[in-house]
Design a protein around this nucleic acid. Structure first.
Lengths: 228, 228
DNA sequence: CGGGCCGTTGATCCATTTCAAACATAGTGG
DNA sequence: CCACTATGTTTGAAATGGATCAACGGCCCG
């Protein structure tokens, strides 16, 4: 599921990587407004990107899973425009931003991969925007869970649904732009239809096809993707 | 407001550019689901990117203005995940996608610019997502108009507000994720406060600071940006 | 003069929010 | 072992922001 690299590329990526870092659930990996000299690749675990308004209203923008880069979003060299928090225990691989120019100069194919990843993130944001702007609560919830289940599958070797998504309903609410109460009622309906099952702090997708139908959405097929 | 290029870069960009193309208002520049061998830089005029659901519900994702690239979003080499329509008469500069690898190989600084632009687009989408997900109708409308006014200023030499934004209220509604009727009432209130003025098929921002206050948002300062 | 597109307004309806409260579970300290 | 607290889920009732329905007026253009 990930593309192969040449020995040169691997050597460079290894030298690029300066440290491996663990993160505990709830830990802030990046903070809006701060300038972070490094950026990360997710090796294991889940996290999410979000923004908050002054009065505390929070919007989750997207989730980060193994293989994703953190900190690529929002001017590669400037201060962060959003925060990133760990959802589960994570392990991250650290890179220094200042080595970016060298990467672009010496490894065009890796540079291309980075652009590819940025562009993939954009596609996801586009779909989220469509979802929040124009889909009903039911459709939104179905879309989100199907989307996350699909992404979860994409990080595992045996690609099957039903893995537990490590979220609380508060996370779902803040992703969908709905209130916690209404989110609960909406999820309840999906669970009553047997499409998902809500567990302790998490949910498992039982019938992805059913969710696709409700949401009016299908996962795109991406082919192999880079892993830096 | 745009960064300077070296003679080599200029020469390459010129060779990269294969044609200049005009577009009339309402014309589709890219269509969701199609594979377009070229992509464009906007030289003049306004357009917008959008997605539609099967039943016709439309969500405008973002606007494209002079200096922006069209078609960069969504896997650089695959089929489009959204459509792009001209809002005013536009002139576009055409590039062939297949020349991307060569650009990345021979002009790292231009490759970096492309990543920079993708990352800038992402920042905008993040803010839109926050807006649609968590801001009230008033706040959203104020944000959108302030945002567009700011972007319009960024394409002109004398940077002042009050230029006419070439939109209908239907466009605003489809951007904000609101109904046309409610959008009208919301815009009316902003106009009654003297913050904006609604003209024939467009609107002019009278008091950007007032909009910033209502929206709880300030435009970021970007410094110089690339123009490819 | 007629038709189409766009903006405007009032009335009604409903999806979602807000308020309020209860329950379940896990962790903590006495 | 049991109160005690914190976090997360669930439910009902009331309030409301925004959607929908319906209609009108202005303007441009053929």
């Amino acid at each position: 599921m990930f593309r192969d690299f040449s020995p040169q590329e691997l050597a460079f990526v290894s030298s690029f990587k300066i440290a491996e870092m663990p993160a505990e659930p709830g830990m802030l990996i990046m903070v809006e407004g701060e300038q972070n000299p490094s950026l990360y690749t997710v090796l294991t675990g889940w996290g999410f990107r979000y923004k908050i308004l002054e009065d505390g209203r929070r919007q989750i923008l997207n989730y980060v899973l193994p293989g994703d880069m953190i900190g690529l979003q929002g001017n590669v060299m400037a201060e962060m425009q959003h925060s990133v928090e760990a959802l589960t225990r994570m392990t991250l691989c650290t890179f220094e931003r200042e080595r970016f120019p060298s990467l672009f100069r010496n490894h065009p194919s890796l540079a291309f991969d980075i652009t590819w990843m940025a562009s993939r993130e954009e596609s996801m944001l586009d779909e989220h925007l469509l979802s929040i702007g124009r889909r009903s609560a039911q459709e939104r919830a179905a879309y989100l869970l199907a989307f996350l289940d699909w992404r979860a599958k994409g990080t595992m070797n045996e690609r099957k649904s039903g893995v537990q998504l490590p979220l609380t309903q508060q996370h779902v609410a803040d992703t969908l732009g709905l209130s916690l109460v209404h989110t609960n009622k909406t999820l309840r309906k999906l669970a009553d239809q047997g499409l998902v099952r809500w567990l302790d702090r998490g949910c498992a997708v039982m019938e992805p096809e059913g969710l696709y139908r409700v949401a009016g959405w299908r996962p795109p097929n991406e082919g192999k993707r880079p892993f830096i």
